[in-house]
Amino acid sequence: MSFIIRRLVFYVVAAWVALTINFIIPRLVPGNAVESIMSKFPNLQPAAYRAIEAMLGVGHPGSIWHQYWAYLVDVAHLNFGTSSSEYPAQVSTLLAEALPWTIVLVGTATVIAFLVGTALGIVAGWRHGGGLDRVLPGLMFLQAIPYFFFALILLELFAVKLHVFPLGQGYGEGLIPGWHWDFISSAVYHSLLPALTIVLTSIAGWMLQMRNVMITTIGEDYVVAAQAKGLANRRVVFTYAARNAILPQLQGFGLAIGFVVSGALVMEIVFSYPGIGLLLVNAVTSNDYALTQGIFLVITFTVLLANLIVDFIIVFVDPRARAREATR
């Protein structure tokens, strides 16, 4: 129990650091931030200027601590300000529209890739030295390909040349989002290629990692002891080797969540998939600071939450974690 509490405190601290960075950075920019933005975009409406000023805290009475407190309160109410590129849309609205797409796509694909990759890794580790090892250099290559590049390749192959999958977007033209079959089937169809991209590139990484951990674990005394006990191979592999090897693998998953999410976001750009990634690139190109920061916060919080869930799973699986002080 104390393990979970310690982790919770840690994530709260991390969230707070993210919030504070978000707050401090714009105020560190030399010169008047508002003016530098205005000079880049001379054609914005005056209301947009006011929105930017509000976000940057210019013209607010009160000390910086007041502003900081106001900022924290805003975030607590999920008020991330007003978008300047999509004025007058609220950042939170835009986020709420885009977030489900990303979570469903990236979440599902990543979990599938992790499970399948780990299973393959268990086999590869157990049969170390055998046929599966010949695939390794290929897997390493696969793992080193940036998500978005792989997306480009797949798109080129399957969408442009072979016309098997759509060229992008989240759903077909002219469809209205809603809970009806037309829309859902179209959405699923459009998500297949992006999901495939994520699964194919990241599976290699999980497999390699699990394989290495398995090899190390198989060398442990308790696996030798399990064999000495004359247990069936299946029991040794799963209950003795894999069940212990899964722990560092899960920890690795927690660490990797940030990477995976980042990679997937960039990949969304290639597919023009209506998720957070696309929103992000639009925000960046149009220098929409409020939106950029809002996206950063949301992504960070999501990743922290995912990490917390992984920690829960680890505690559930590892009896030692429940007992020991987490000295991560």
Binding site: E220, D221, Y222, V224, A225, A226, Q227, A228, K229, G230, L231, A232, T239, Y240, R243, N244, V317, D318, P319, R320
Partner: peptide, 24 residues
């Protein structure tokens, strides 16, 4: 071999901490 092991020949390992499965 599997039938021989443990039923006929059992082993007490040197380091019990290492020879016992930590998660069972």
């Amino acid at each position: 071999l599997r039938r021989l092991r443990w039923r006929e020949i059992a082993i007490v390992f040197q380091s019990a901490m290492n020879a016992l499965n930590p998660v069972l």
